[in-house]
Design a binder for these strands. Structure first.
Lengths: 281, 281
DNA sequence: AATTACTGTACGCATACATGAACACACGCG
DNA sequence: CGCGTGTGTTCATGTATGCGTACAGTAATT
């Protein structure tokens, strides 16, 4: 999971040595801290870990951590002196209704889906050029894909992501990828912008996307969109299957697609009236 | 829901006119912003709303909002120029595992509970002297208690809260309430520290708590603790019933208790190995 | 006990930030 | 069309804030 840098580097190549204009140092740092602590496993971040990771002066960091802990956005585990995300941060996050509504709409349908096909199902939304996992239901087989709700992956490397990207117009896709390099995570990762656009076009026609170990080798994945009543793509559901369990791709795919399509429309219905907006930029 | 101030005022009575020592202005403001936006319904906060609520200079606020929106912690709805919580804030909040694990462990059991007794069930944890709702399952009857996951209430005013407080030692309770006034929300709200401690003692003996419209009039509520294998209180489950549907309290209470106890142990088991720590101070 | 490594505290200086005021832009309304 | 309101931008200035250094507490190690 650490193959992807967490903070996507600035598209505005000009990395001034001093500071990006219009930025506020301690505001940025607060967010850096929250994201850093959120990105690491629970009991791993001690004071000096943070200090080295973010390269902040000791005294400055102390002040910031004080503010964050005093207000309950972080907590300091007194045992091993590690910092974690606190209640207040969770509370704030709960108000991102788009994710919470989607997750609660999806959960029951995902477990139904898994009853029909015992593999890992996931729901994700699009944020920029990345897909963000919002809900999941894991297969109970010993060999299975495990994932984290809240994690994000480059959209062009996953079936889920391709479905989400296919929901955008080609020009919008163009805009979002402008100036970005397509990192090759595995041999089968999409390599060029052209190849991506071709694949997206085919996704738009077929109504589903696949990926053959394009981010994680040995995992096959099919995904379909979750549409609003007006036909715009709200999110996507996917089914991930270890290639080892995949003697005959096409037959499994058809079965998975049947389950996924049912699941997607169910979720779409459950979301029903509670649609407010599309995910962030 | 607006009867309670969101930011619990400082226990250190000394409110200096200038600024609390050791604080960092823009860091505090970032958190103020996140909490403010999170505390209001989605489409209500425009730029000047925020400005007046937080009483910030225009130019300063612009800078902060820029940082927050650029980094995806807030989003600006271009339609009506209102600010909302963004994906990144949600992502960070997801890492407060205690809540997310509890919620996912609870959800299925809560819906089972509701099948047995068609009323509103809730799960909450303790944060300071407040209970924070983590999961819920609403009754489908027209007259029902509706609540929000992520909202918080003074613990001494709810059955849930009393169960959670009863999980602490009397001295710890003492410490947390030191210097706090017990606001009377309804005629039946607990009025004094002594009365509260008495009730808590009785909760410790009986293993459950009740409240008779002590925060919201016309709502009866029973609650039981969710315990770890070592017997410490992890959270609490409650059942809320409109008094109008409550001809004979004791019989309904017994039924509710049966359902709640079953539910609590199920959740406790589901949490199982994934216990990491108690909620924040 | 003495040593080390890590966390937390205190303080004075220079810098970078918050501020207010004034201007620019868009929108809706009379 | 002119007006009002809400929003976003620019810029100069004084001051709050971030920084380095130095010191204190704590825990585990030898």
């Amino acid at each position: 999971m650490d193959r992807v840098r967490e903070r996507e580097s600035d598209a505005t190549g000009a990395a001034s040595p001093t500071q990006a204009a219009g930025s506020i140092k301690s505001a940025e740092r607060v967010l850096d801290l929250l994201q850093l602590v959120a990105s690491e496993p629970s009991d791993s971040l001690t004071f000096s870990d943070i200090r080295t990771r973010l390269d902040l002066p000791k005294s400055s960091l102390h002040g910031l951590l004080r503010v964050l802990t005093d207000r309950g956005f972080l907590t300091l585990d007194p045992e091993n002196k590690t910092y974690r995300i606190g209640v207040r941060a969770w509370q704030v996050g709960q108000q991102f209704r788009f994710a919470t509504q989607l997750a609660s709409a999806a959960n029951s349908h995902l477990s139904e889906a898994r009853v029909e096909l015992n593999e890992t199902f996931q729901v994700a939304i699009l944020d920029g050029v990345e897909n963000v996992y919002v809900a999941k239901e894991e297969s109970d087989q010993p060999l299975r894909l495990v994932s984290e709700v809240g994690s994000r992956l480059p959209a062009y490397t996953t079936g889920l992501g391709k479905v989400l990207l296919a929901g955008l117009s080609p020009s919008e896709v163009e805009r979002r990828f402008k100036g970005r390099r397509l990192v090759k995570f595995t041999p089968s990762t999409v390599a060029t912008r052209e190849e991506l656009e071709q694949q997206l076009e085919s996704v738009r026609e077929l109504g589903y996307a696949e990926d053959h170990g394009e981010f994680t080798e040995g995992v096959y994945c099919v995904a379909v969109p979750i549409l609003t009543s007006t036909g715009s793509t709200l999110a996507a559901v996917s089914c991930s299957i270890p290639s080892a369990r995949l003697p005959d791709v096409s037959s499994v795919r058809d079965q998975a697609l049947r389950v996924l399509r049912k699941c997607a429309t169910s979720i779409s219905v459950s979301m029903g009236e509670s649609i407010d907006s599309t995910p962030a930029g």
